[in-house]
Design a protein around this nucleic acid. Structure first.
Length: 557
RNA sequence: GCGCCAGUAGCUCAGUGGAUAGAGCGCUACCCUGCGGAGGUAGAGGUCAGAGGUUCGAAUCCUCUCUGGCGUACCA
């Protein structure tokens, strides 16, 4: 559409009705008000200054070159200088057939041109069950991945398992203490350990699986194998939580593997930094001299006791993502409490792989939980933990995902557990899924009654509410492109509501008119078949939206 | 202190520098009794936190102030 306007503008310059001026990027808007057409351009307003002409005269000159054709009708000019474009009716009608033909590929685009994108999300420490906040990260990351795939990227989903480092040690110590308690030893958990009840359950599982083979002196550190098995048990739990939530990963990437093998990524990354002069030894520790790279301060990479920091792992990990695995685009989805880490990781990634620009860290603000009026704090250490499993148990994965997706990642959100539990129309997820089920129901009934949608002629569809529904479907490709460009999945959720609204309005319009011939299924075979084409296309589009959000598209409810 | 993110209707929140700032819930009045009512239409409700600035045009960009959240570790 933008190209159309640009071409017309250049033609106007050639024809001499506009002076020869440089064109800015031609932006096309979707007007809020349907009276302003399907698309609008404010290009005349932007050109007014450099062309030294009144905007309306420019609009006139451009629209003279915009002839009505297969795609658009004659453009309209509106003060103070808009050009309003309306899709041709025949074009809108023919799009119904295209949607049906494309099916599950409908609204795909080639923005990514086959580039490889990696989305890493959730990646919570395997030291406890996932909580509600992790669910937000899962919904955002998973939907972003699906949207990027729809936009033409080759996408991999990855979970980074923090199985090295201090927290994993503390986890192992806690587990060991709980394990010993299973054998009636009076051993306390460490001061900074994990007090949650789930650690007791984990210890019971460990005892059941391994009997007493890890029982050593109470003062001994836990066996390395106990730690491995413990983390594995925890990861299995996390994996099953995410599966319940509807999220599958392509890869679970071990932090420890960065330090293992013949040629560890960690060694390679650090020697790269060293040879580029980005490392310095000081106070017995090894520092990344990030202050030379625009950061406020240097950061410790290897502690004075020789153990690498979390930051060191992250540098090696991103070195691996870019240098070894060659991703073109990497998105890390993190909770906002990690935002202090973003800038230095980007700097380090640039220094170690020259890819700082290809790394995008998407922060989501933390979730505040409410039970009615009461605020529930999220805390892994003591206090009330609402796990993601509990949430899914209460409201189902679809409702949970949808609520998380409905809010911009950058906004702090309130999740009212009491409200989300309600199975009523206060919950917009039912509104959308219900629309899909109604569409399915119409098609099912049509098949039972022997209607043949394949024979429908879409040119028979002329009612405003019919064409409005198609117009709404056509927006999906723009929404996918928007999500894939801005990394803001909430647009998809809002679009889902709007598409469902269009369908409900379409469906209701027949009822309001009270004429049995105005339903989808009527005695008029030709018209019925045409409307069934529309219904099939709508089901295709709505199903696609639900699929991108990782939600079920029910045939019945 | 410094830095990051927010502040939009009673509540929860959308809003790519464009036309009269929107949705859901709640409230009010209607429509429809259905191919699935978990529906539709309309109305009331706004100092877009505040003050300056840029622009033909600002909720949107810039500066300052206020409020809230988070960060500012040889934790992750």
């Amino acid at each position: 559409m933008g190209a159309l306007v640009e071409k017309a503008t250049q033609a106007a310059i050639k024809a001499g009705s506009l002076p020869d001026i440089a064109l800015p990027e031609v932006l096309i808007e979707r007007p809020r008000d349907a009276a302003h057409g399907d698309y609008a351009s404010s290009l005349p307003l932007r050109l007014a200054r450099s062309a030294m002409m009144p905007p309306l005269a420019i609009a006139e000159a451009i629209s003279e070159q915009l002839k009505a054709g297969e795609i658009i009708d004659t453009p309209e000019i509106a003060p103070p200088g808009f050009i309003n474009l309306r899709l041709a009716e025949s074009f809108v009608q023919s799009e119904i057939n295209r949607i049906i033909e494309q099916g599950p590929e409908f609204a795909n685009c080639n923005l990514g041109r086959g580039q490889r994108a990696q989305i890493e999300f959730v990646s919570a420490n395997p030291t406890g069950p996932l909580h509600v906040g992790n669910g937000r990260g899962a919904a955002i990351g998973d939907t972003l991945a699906a949207s990027l795939a729809a936009a033409g990227y080759q996408v991999e989903r990855e979970y980074y398992v923090n199985d090295a480092g201090t927290q994993a040690d503390v986890f192992a110590e806690t587990l060991y203490a709980r394990y010993q308690q299973q054998f009636d030893r009076d051993v306390p958990i460490p001061d900074n350990g994990y007090p949650g009840e789930y650690m007791v359950e984990l210890a019971m599982a460990l005892r059941q699986q391994e009997a007493d083979r890890f029982l050593a002196a109470p003062t001994d550190p836990p066996a390395p194998e106990l730690r491995e098995i413990g983390i594995e048990l925890m990861i299995n739990e996390i994996r099953s939580t995410l599966t319940n939530f509807g999220t599958q990963y392509d890869r679970w990437y071990s932090e420890r593997s960065l330090y293992q093998g013949d040629n560890p990524a960690y060694d390679e990354a650090l020697s790269g930094l060293r040879s580029n002069g980005h490392l310095a030894e000081r106070e017995g520790a090894l520092w990344l001299t990030s202050s030379n790279l625009g950061e406020d301060k240097d950061n410790v990479v290897v502690r004075s006791d020789g153990r690498p920091t979390y930051f060191a792992s992250d540098i090696a990990y991103h070195y691996d993502k870019f240098q070894r695995r060659g991703f073109d685009l990497v998105i890390d989805v993190w909770g906002a409490d990690h935002h202090g880490h973003v800038s230095r990781l980007k700097v380090a990634t640039e220094a170690v792989a020259g890819k700082g620009e290809a790394l995008h860290v998407l922060l989501y603000q933390l979730v505040t939980l409410k039970r009615g009026e009461e605020i529930v704090r999220l805390s892994k250490r003591g206090g009330e933990i609402i796990t993601l499993d509990e949430l899914v148990e209460e409201v189902g994965p679809d409702a949970a995902r949808f609520f998380f997706l409905l809010r911009a990642p950058n906004s702090q959100m309130e999740f009212d557990l009491d409200l989300a539990v309600k199975r009523s129309n206060e919950n917009p997820v039912y509104y959308i899924q219900y629309a899909h089920a109604r569409l399915a129901s119409i098609l099912e009934r049509a098949a039972r009654e022997g209607h043949i949608p394949e024979e429908g002629d879409v040119a028979l569809l002329k009612a405003p509410h019919e064409l409005a529904l198609v117009r709404e479907m056509l927006r999906l490709s723009e929404v996918i492109e928007l999500v894939a460009t801005t990394y803001e999945p909430q647009h998809l959720a809002h679009y889902g509501i709007e598409l469902a609204t269009s369908f409900h309005a379409f469906n209701d319009a027949f009822r309001q008119q009270g004429d049995p011939n105005l339903k989808v299924l009527t005695d008029n075979t030709a018209l019925t078949a045409a409307r069934l084409r529309l219904v099939l296309a709508a089901k295709t589009a709505l199903g696609r939206v639900l699929d991108l959000m990782g939600m079920n598209a029910p045939e019945s409810m």
